[in-house]
């Protein structure tokens, strides 16, 4: 009897210990996750927190900066939209992004299809070469590019960005779409061609509809990349009526030593957060492209 009771006690003790260890592991997991989340998000949290501060609150050195000492206000957002060129920047960004999407689709969709279906062995190698073009950074090309833009008569115009941005969206999106087209079975085109469509007809009527998720991904990334680009825009455009958000906000709203911090932060957050949401939605596709298909997630 005592032997059994002894055994049970040992088991109970072991179980309790395992329970503690599990709880410890969970605790560690949550702690580390929280620390990383804080590190990533604090600049944004501070950004958003600042937007609603009144000037009297923000510029009073005696105030606790982590509280709203005066009631929060929307005045700074109103100032941003009514007294700065912010709306112009937003409109320009949408204009550039929309046209970049169109150009990217026109070039990347057929290219990706050709590389996966029509060019045989060297298609794959050429595809990788095109992807490597994406890694050639704007910081290496912006000096001669300013000259080309001037030659094209686009200096200081938002059209300069429309023309130049596809240089990085086309390579990346072609590569992404190649992955999509590879996963579409041949039968789809074959069936369409048996039904009497030409190859082009088969592509338009059978392949494009099933690759809509891929095309959507391309649209999302072309928009995101347009928003992210900085050095070309800075080098090409100087007048504020042609600027996009990224350069407009950082060059126009920061004037010498006079900062409208709250409006500046509003300007950043209003654009940054929607872009981040879209990007996160398509992140897995992005990574699949980046790992060269070496990893199938």
């Amino acid at each position: 009897m005592t032997a059994i009771a002894e055994q049970q006690r040992v088991w109970q003790r072991e179980e309790r210990r395992a329970g503690w260890r599990r709880a410890g592991k969970r605790g560690l997991l949550y702690t580390v996750a929280t620390l990383f989340a804080l590190f990533a998000a604090i600049p944004f949290a501070w950004m958003v927190f600042t937007i609603f501060k009144q000037n009297t609150d923000l510029y009073n050195g005696k105030n606790n900066p982590f509280l709203y000492n005066d009631p929060p206000t929307l005045d700074n957002i109103r100032l941003l939209f009514n007294q700065t060129n912010y709306t112009t920047f937003v409109v320009n960004t949408i204009f550039v992004a929309a046209l970049v999407v169109v150009i990217t689709l026109i070039a990347a969709v057929p290219a990706a299809y050709a590389l996966t279906r029509l060019t045989g062995r060297w298609g794959e190698s050429l595809g990788i070469a095109i992807f490597l073009v994406y890694l050639v950074p704007p910081t290496l090309l912006f000096i001669p590019m300013t000259r080309i833009v001037a030659e094209l008569g686009l200096k200081n115009s938002r059209w300069s960005m429309v023309v130049v941005y596809p240089t990085f969206t086309i390579p990346f999106c072609t590569w992404l779409l190649m992955g999509f087209f590879k996963s579409i079975p041949w039968d789809i085109e074959e069936q369409a061609m048996i039904d009497g469509y030409s190859r082009l007809g088969a592509i338009v009527r059978a392949v494009i509809p099933v690759s809509l998720p891929g095309i959507l991904t391309v649209i999302a990334f072309s928009v995101a990349m347009t928003m992210h680009e900085f050095v070309y825009a800075l080098a090409f455009v100087t007048s504020s009526s042609e600027k996009t958000v990224s350069i407009g906000v950082t060059t126009e709203l920061i004037r010498g030593d006079v900062f409208f911090w709250q409006s500046l932060m509003a300007a950043a957050a209003i654009v940054a957060i929607p872009v981040a949401l879209i990007y996160t939605l398509f992140l897995d596709r992005f990574i699949q492209g980046f790992t060269l298909g070496a990893v199938k997630g």
Partner: peptide, 13 residues
């Protein structure tokens, strides 16, 4: 949250 630094436009972040 942890993806935010990469997904937001660089200049704004």
């Amino acid at each position: 949250l942890v993806m935010l630094p990469w997904t937001t436009p660089i200049a704004l972040a």
